[in-house]
Design a binder for these strands. Structure first.
Length: 410
RNA sequence: GAGGGUGUAGCUCAGUCGGUAGAGCACAAGGUUGUGGCCCUUGGGGUCGCGGGUUCAAGUCCCGUCACCCUCCCCA
């Protein structure tokens, strides 16, 4: 019988990694809530059309990375490849706009993309993200960037922030026309991919890492030149506010992002410490997406961060609570051992009741491996051993035992 | 989707010219009949990724396949 294994691109997260996972996600949740975002728990499965209509038919996600299948009812469904579209779908479907004002939501969970796995990149990966729906205020852009910045700071992750603006749809229409004309002139110098992108998604050509493409587009017109005065002004405000908050950024006119729905502000927090997967967190404004998905005209923006990538960049976990191990000295004290563990746990002490069978010596060895700060031997009395110094004290009542133990583990 | 690398004990790895598999660490028991770490002794562990081929004989050579890692592409 052959061993059943994980399916390709999927992983078990356990040990140090599950601690890191929890640390990253809990930290994010804490910060999001501090900014008064509300959690939304979204389905993992959505109608395929949701992503076709939002992410964009010509994006890589839709072209080759979607996990799609037909369910038993004949529905075409997809495991969600990202979180923004489902959030917007829920915003519309649950009529959150009817509550007036704007809505601030965050989510956390598994996303799926069918692609070649490598370090820090899996077919099931996890994202945390947040969205602000219903306001076009530049303050929302600043707050969003500031919040991500806070998160990365708290996690102790150093990144570079790059920002850009894609302008309004109208600004972009004229620009794309001119850009296409320019690209036609240098078509021969572009890579295969870009020759295809040229027509379907010309902005992506600017973001190509290929050197000859870079050279060929060095003189290309930039979007900045086509921005309407209002959009320009908006971008200036954004930069001004970021500076006021002491957030360092770089304007990258070539930053366009891979998804179709972005407008105006886009941003990326990147690092060079984890190889090819440089983007740690990214997002932007998508003022037309809600309407595109059948909602009313609703400006919005959001961001997402890859949990696995954040985990790769977190090297120190917060210190853990000391562990106390309770060892009944012989079988006749097992009941008292159970009660002792109960007493300690009720006091909030992280307690391991020794479950290993065998000699006391082997139990002590196991206690050592568990990283015990102290051991409480249970017999007709309590003996509290400090595992660092090796010294031992006795007590007869649970109260005295707790008193001694308290001093040992602090 | 394209290119490259690696699969031998729980882990890190060695294995010569093809001759029937080893080390260190880890693990277990004992030395200490109620006490971990250091030391000593002893012991348990292998589908040599999987399948096929060549051969008297394959961990070693050949073919296929799977997995992991890296680069590109792309993204979180």
């Amino acid at each position: 019988m052959s061993q059943i294994k994980r399916v390709r691109g999927f992983q078990d997260i356990y040990g140090e990694n599950s601690k890191k996972y929890r640390y990253v996600v809990d930290t994010a949740r804490d910060i999001f809530q501090r900014y008064n975002f509300e959690e939304i728990i979204l389905p993992v499965v959505e109608d395929v059309s949701l992503f076709l209509r939002s992410v964009g038919e010509d994006t890589d996600i839709v072209q080759k990375e979607m996990y799609t299948f037909e369910d038993r009812g004949g529905r075409q469904v997809a495991l969600r490849p990202e979180g923004t579209a489902p959030t917007v779908r829920a915003f519309i479907e649950e009529k959150m706009f009817a509550q007036g004002g704007y809505k601030k939501l965050f989510y956390e969970g598994a996303m799926f993309r069918y692609e070649r796995p490598q370090a820090g990149r899996y077919r099931q990966f996890h994202q945390i993200g947040a969205e602000i729906l219903g306001t076009g205020s530049v303050l929302a852009d600043v707050e969003m960037i500031k919040m991500v910045n806070d998160l990365l700071d708290t996690l102790g992750i150093e990144t570079t922030l790059e920002i850009n603006t894609l302008g309004s749809f109208e600004d972009r229409k004229e620009y794309i026309k001119q850009l296409k004309d320019y690209l036609k002139g240098v078509k021969d110098k572009l890579c295969k991919d870009c020759q295809v992108r040229m027509d379907r998604n010309p902005l992506r050509v600017l973001d190509c890492k290929n050197e000859s493409c870079r050279e060929a587009t060095a003189e290309a017109p930039t979007l900045l030149q086509f921005l309407s005065p209002e959009r320009k002004e908006r971008f200036e405000k954004l930069k001004e506010y970021l500076s006021q908050l002491g957030i360092k950024y770089k304007v990258n006119p070539r930053l366009v992002r891979g998804l179709d729905y972005y407008t105006d502000t886009v941003f990326e927090f990147t690092t060079d410490k984890i190889g090819a997967q440089g983007t740690v967190a990214a997002g932007g404004r998508y003022d037309t997406l809600v309407k595109q998905l059948g909602g009313s005209d609703t400006p919005a923006l959001g961001f997402a961060a890859g949990v696995e990538r954040l985990m790769l960049l977190v090297d120190q976990l917060p210190s853990e609570k000391p562990t106390v191990v309770v060892i009944p000295i012989s079988q006749q004290y097992e009941g008292k051992g159970l009660q002792t563990a109960d007493i300690l746990r009720k006091r909030g002490i992280k307690t391991e009741l020794m479950l290993k069978e065998g000699s006391l010596k082997s139990k002590m060895k196991t206690a050592g491996k568990l990283g015990a700060k102290a051991v409480v031997f249970v017999s007709d009395r309590y003996e509290i051993k400090d595992m660092e110094t090796g010294s031992q004290q006795e007590a007869t009542s649970p109260e005295d035992m707790l008193g001694i133990l308290g001093k040992v583990i602090t």
